[in-house]
């Protein structure tokens, strides 16, 4: 086995019910790389931290205050980079992503040396409710209009970053709009962006936990704000 690491970052906020299943299903190595599982507990008010702490192979980082999915992902990415991980995957804690898809995306990134691999739920739209399809396609279109870069599923939480991508992508958004900002930053830095099809698992729980289409309005506002800040701050 190589003495190199791959990380799987899982941002979690009040996920005590679903995260156990997610953590139990993740492998400990892929293609000669050892896997470090990093859970960023984003100031949960339930027992997420206690539940995760019982897993000895999991690194738990507790955010002091709830800061949002973007901030939790950034903390996980930076920590993974600091411990020398070559590739870093991010996935949701609510069980929306299949561990097999995470492994598939990681293998793809390692084999093809891609900088940013996006697990696209919209390439097949399998298992997605129609209102989620419309909302996500709309946000991909808005991402294209605001930032000039088109991907099929801009809001996917399953992404794989190369070390180079983590070093070059400097996103600021703390909320869900970070997904689009990451793609924009990757495009700006001429990093390779590839989408691979994944299956999204939507349960009543994950639908209630995930973004509603109303949140899309806030995401659009955040994206426009980021574009204006780019104009002011360069």
């Amino acid at each position: 086995m190589k003495n190199e690491y791959i990380a799987i970052v899982i941002p979690a906020y009040n996920e005590e019910h679903s995260i156990i299943k997610v953590l139990k299903s993740l492998p400990s190595n892929i293609k000669n790389y050892q896997i470090k599982i990093i859970v960023v507990n984003d100031g949960s008010t339930d027992n997420t931290a206690l539940v995760v702490d019982k897993f000895k192979n999991v690194i738990l980082i507790n955010h002091i205050i709830n800061s949002g999915a973007g901030a939790a992902t950034r903390t996980g990415l930076h920590f993974a980079k600091s411990i020398g991980c070559k590739y870093i995957a991010t996935m949701d804690a609510d069980g929306q992503h299949l561990p097999t898809d995470t492994v598939k995306a990681l293998k793809y990134a390692v084999e093809n040396k891609t900088d940013l691999t996006i697990g696209s739920r919209l390439m097949t739209s399998e298992g997605m409710p129609w209102h989620k399809i419309i909302g996500n396609k709309g946000l991909s279109l808005i991402t294209f209009l605001v930032f000039g870069v088109f991907v099929i599923d801009s809001q996917s939480g399953l992404k794989v970053f190369s070390k180079k991508a983590v070093e070059n992508i400097n996103f600021h958004n703390n909320g869900y709009a970070f997904c689009s900002e990451v793609i924009w930053q990757a495009h700006k830095n001429h990093l390779s962006i590839v989408e691979i099809p994944i299956k999204a698992v939507y349960t009543e729980y994950s639908i209630s936990k995930g973004q509603s289409n109303w949140n899309s309005i806030e995401i659009v506002r955040q994206l426009v704000k980021r574009r204006i800040m780019e104009f002011i701050n360069g």
Binding site: H63, H172, I232
Partner: peptide, 24 residues
């Protein structure tokens, strides 16, 4: 003001991130 607030927000976020990692 917008520029300064954005810079401050980024610094506070960085501080929170580093503090969280250190404490963990």
């Amino acid at each position: 003001a917008y520029s300064k607030i954005d810079n401050l927000e980024n610094r506070v976020t960085d501080l929170h991130e580093k503090l969280s990692i250190e404490l963990s």
